[in-house]
Design a protein around this nucleic acid. Structure first.
Lengths: 195, 195
DNA sequence: GCGATCTTCTAGCAGTGCTAGAGTCGGAAC
DNA sequence: GTTCCGACTCTAGCACTGCTAGAAGATCGC
């Protein structure tokens, strides 16, 4: 049914779609999301504006969502990779997790914004939650479950921990914190959850 | 030096300034910040657009900042008022504080966004930090200091607590949480900080 | 090679933040 | 009471935004 030409076309389409997402992400990280305009994206991929709407019928916001999903995939991988061996202490486990999270957020600020700040239309904890999001959450909950003294409700605690770390990132980036106190805050947070 | 006419003019200017801020806030709470355009604001105060720039030379972003400052004033008042009497337990004190914070955030979502999400040019923990911001922070730090078992570094813990509660608000509003688990999360957070 | 289909582009809409310059009005001085 | 100046406000317009209709074009199956 699918001719070779059609297969090639589908492949080219997919490639172009990814070039759009990559261009949006690069532009956002370099100059902020307000610099990510449909005209600049069209220039970056060397096509005209309407082409974008062929890939993303919902327009700009759908492109932002695509960047957010890519970010969640990377975060899930980083958090899973942050798990320590059996001889680690509870404090070390949580510190490794939190540090991995903060690293991801610090290295990709614009992508992080797409994931949490910008209004992207992705229901999180529901049926249709993309797998990458569940994965990232599971990495956090898994670390809590593996503690020597696991919390009574690991899932709920995972949600609270996620929120606490996100709050740290958000307030720090918005300059709502005293400067230079970063490591103290992280250590305080870690010991709070490691009990 | 100041003639009666000049005094009246100054008063009228201040009134008009506040009408702009009030209009921006009302519009944002009703239809979101993207609906707060300079044209709509001008319509609301029944003047033309350029009048806005007489009050706020930096334009729209300065108006958002003004709304944020009003929000901080209200938050400082609400958090201070949440302090409990001497017979309260640590858990009750923190719960009262956190609940007051969540109430403010839930009742004025757009104002809350102006305070923390939108890029307003207000350095927080620095010399020029407006008094209202310091006040809000002091209400949190003060509650921690008054605990039966105060944390080792109340200021740092206050920053972490602020971040944790903000994270709760942010993730909840961005639909990054499982629905219906709200009270569990709050209680988990409270007990974490009440030791 | 033909013809239909699918793709891409040009051009334009309505809206945005912001501003230059023209015009109007109030109030101080005589 | 009249004049005149300065402060104030408005009209009109710029360059930009996201998005889309309809024309022009290329491509592919036959």
């Amino acid at each position: 049914m699918t001719t070779p030409a059609a297969a090639r076309r589908a492949r080219e389409l997919e490639e172009r779609r990814e070039r759009i997402v990559a261009a949006a992400r690069a532009l956002a990280e370099e100059q902020g999301w307000e610099a990510v305009t449909t005209r600049r994206l069209a220039d970056a991929i060397e096509y005209s504006q309407p082409v974008l709407y062929g890939h993303f019928p919902q327009g700009r916001s759908e492109i932002v969502t695509a960047v957010a999903l890519a970010g969640f995939a990377e975060m899930a991988a980083a958090l899973s990779a942050s798990a320590l061996g059996p001889e680690a202490t509870d404090v070390e486990r949580i510190r490794s997790l939190v540090t991995a999270y903060l690293d991801i957020a610090r290295r990709n600020p614009a992508t992080y914004d797409a994931m949490f700040l910008l209004p992207v239309a992705v229901p999180f904890a529901s049926e249709e939650t993309p797998a990458v999001m569940r994965e990232a959450f599971e990495a956090i909950a898994g670390t809590l479950r593996r503690l020597d003294v696991p919390p009574p409700a690991p899932e709920t605690t995972a949600e609270v921990l996620w929120g606490a770390v996100h709050g740290l990132v958000a307030l720090e980036r918005a300059n709502r914190y005293s400067p230079g106190n970063h490591t103290d805050r992280v250590e305080t947070l870690v010991r709070l959850f490691a009990h």
